[in-house]
Design a protein around this nucleic acid. Structure first.
Length: 476
RNA sequence: UCCUCGGUAGCUCAAUGGUGGAGCAACCGGCUGUUAACCGGUAGGUUGCUGGUUCGAGUCCAGCCCGGGGAGCCA
């Protein structure tokens, strides 16, 4: 439909979107076009005025000039409020001396949808906290227009990266019967009546009466399932929603978020880290090259060092250290940490930030963590004390990727599950993968929103999710 | 869940325990090139809720609700 010619009176007029005008300006200069969009601002004077028009197809607005002499409904147009939807016909002209490269000299302006006096989005700075309360309107602001366009491009870049490498995209289930996925509290999925659930002989809720005939939850990770596909397709990835019912109240946690989980067979931890580094560099490059206006905006108004930092990452090798080396660096740093640095304890946020922001000043992989602080499926190293796990820490956001080589030796995996009191019957299928052609394999999870935060500089996860779900908050 | 800071006009913020204000937005008017336009005017308030102290509470105290920042858990 867009770009198609249609009859307007006796003259054909091309209906265009702002993206076309920006990308292909020369083609439209001195031509009559029609643009539909929403008014960002309207500044009228005695005999002329300016509308900043945004149609959502590009970060930029188009300046529309309207004059009393050439517009029959000048007086009405002068009163069009911010947020109104309008249709504008006019001639595109170059404006070399002005702030913008071109503008639209209107010949006809029609109000398509009025915006009432109490429209909350004003042509001024708003706090992000306020805009969260009007999540249905905030995509019309510069910041959120840029964030959500980058979100879309980033999803595409991730698919592009994996598809170009021949990875198979796997839709792992959203509803799962595993409650041993090992990543925190889960949301129950049920059709039972909460007021009068069926009870069994022990007067507990009888889940055999439930929809699936058993207890089910929303997934906290597609990893276990995607391992099955890695052992059939070799290189695979998931990219979908994930749900955690943790009572986490931070700028980096949401109850519903998206995660990318590649899994590669015939591959070890080193291959896994190489893949993660390639992917991070690829998606950053893609956004820098395909969202220039948005990145310029973030660099100017959100984080002044953003572009330099991202360019630096694309062009530098990520640092690699072992957990044990990390502990050594922290112990010798002389820094006063709130939490004690001790081999066997997990690294705290303050430790991670010190490593990535102060010591290396770039992304750093930390690998070979003590097995007692990591999940059952991670491969036990030869030292029997550590597992082949890795976290990628980045300045500003902290942990963005967590991954591991998986334990492919059935006997050791069973020992680990027994030690951690994990029900082997429920995960029989997972153990089967080791029994029938099991090979070394590895994978990681990338928090999609954390990647967006890292690339845009936006520091709260609630501002990179269209309609965020967090503890005690599920509006819209 | 814990620590911490905050809640005053639609928004962003002022106001020593003593008559609640400003800028922006809205509305009315002015202005021949604005782009966070500018200039003049008008309107706009149960100071988050409940209770307490006081002659008097936006201000002090208690409880609750909501939000920010930090921590834990993690992606």
């Amino acid at each position: 439909m867009l770009g198609k010619k249609f009859k307007q009176g006796a003259f054909p007029m091309e209906k265009v979107v702002v993206r076309q005008l920006v990308r292909d300006t020369k083609r439209y200069i001195n031509k009559e076009v029609e643009v539909n969009g929403w008014v960002r601002s309207n500044r009228d004077q005695k005999s002329f005025g300016f509308v900043s028009l945004n149609d959502g197809t590009h970060f930029n607005t188009v300046q529309v000039v309207y004059e009393k002499d050439s517009l029959a409904n000048f007086d009405e147009v002068a009163k069009f409020r911010v947020g109104s939807a309008v249709s504008i016909q006019g001639k595109l002209v170059e404006t070399p001396q002005a702030k913008q490269a071109f503008e639209l000299k209107a010949t006809r302006i029609i109000l398509l949808g009025d915006s009432s006096e109490d429209y909350p989005i004003q042509p001024k700075r708003h706090s992000k906290e306020f805009l969260r309360e009007v999540a249905h309107l905030r995509p019309r602001t510069n910041l959120f227009s840029a964030v959500f366009r980058v979100r879309s491009l980033l999803a595409y870049a991730i698919h592009k990266f994996f598809q170009e490498k021949g990875f198979v995209y796997v839709h792992t289930p959203i509803i799962t019967a595993n409650d041993a996925e090992g990543a925190g509290e889960m949301f129950r999925v049920t059709t039972l009546d909460p007021k009068e659930p069926p009870l069994n002989e022990d007067r507990n809720v009888d889940f055999s009466e439930d929809f699936f005939g058993r207890r089910t939850n929303l997934t906290v990770s597609g990893q276990l399932e995607v391992e099955a596909f890695a052992l059939a397709f070799r290189d695979v990835y998931t990219f979908g929603p994930t749900f955690r019912a943790e009572n986490s109240n931070t700028a980096r946690h949401a109850a519903e978020f998206w995660m990318i989980e590649p899994e590669i067979a015939f591959a070890d931890l080193k291959d896994n880290m190489n893949l993660a580094e390639d992917m991070v560099k690829y998606i950053i490059s893609y956004i820098l090259n395909n969202a220039a206006e948005e990145m310029e905006f973030f660099n100017k108004f959100v984080d002044k060092g953003l572009k330099d930092r991202l360019n630096n990452i694309v062009n530098s090798e990520f640092a690699h250290i072992t957990y044990t080396e990390a502990i050594g660096i922290l112990e010798e740093s002389g820094e006063k940490f709130e939490y004690a640095v001790k081999w066997g304890n997990d690294l705290q946020t303050e430790h991670e930030r010190y490593l990535t922001e102060k010591v290396f000043k770039k992304p750093v992989f930390v690998k070979d963590y003590p097995k007692d602080i990591k999940a059952f499926y991670m491969r036990v190293n030869d030292d029997k004390k550590t597992v082949a796990a890795m976290d990628l820490l980045v300045p500003g956001v902290g942990e963005i990727i967590g991954g591991s080589q998986r334990e492919e030796r059935a006997d050791i995996l069973e020992q680990r599950m027994a030690a951690l009191d994990i029900n082997q019957e429920e995960l029989r299928w997972y153990l089967d993968l080791r029994k029938f052609g099991g090979v070394k394999h590895a994978g990681f999870g990338l928090g999609f929103e954390r990647a967006i935060m890292y690339i845009t500089g936006v520091s709260n996860i609630r501002d990179v999710v269209p309609f965020p779900r967090t503890v005690n908050s599920c509006e819209y």
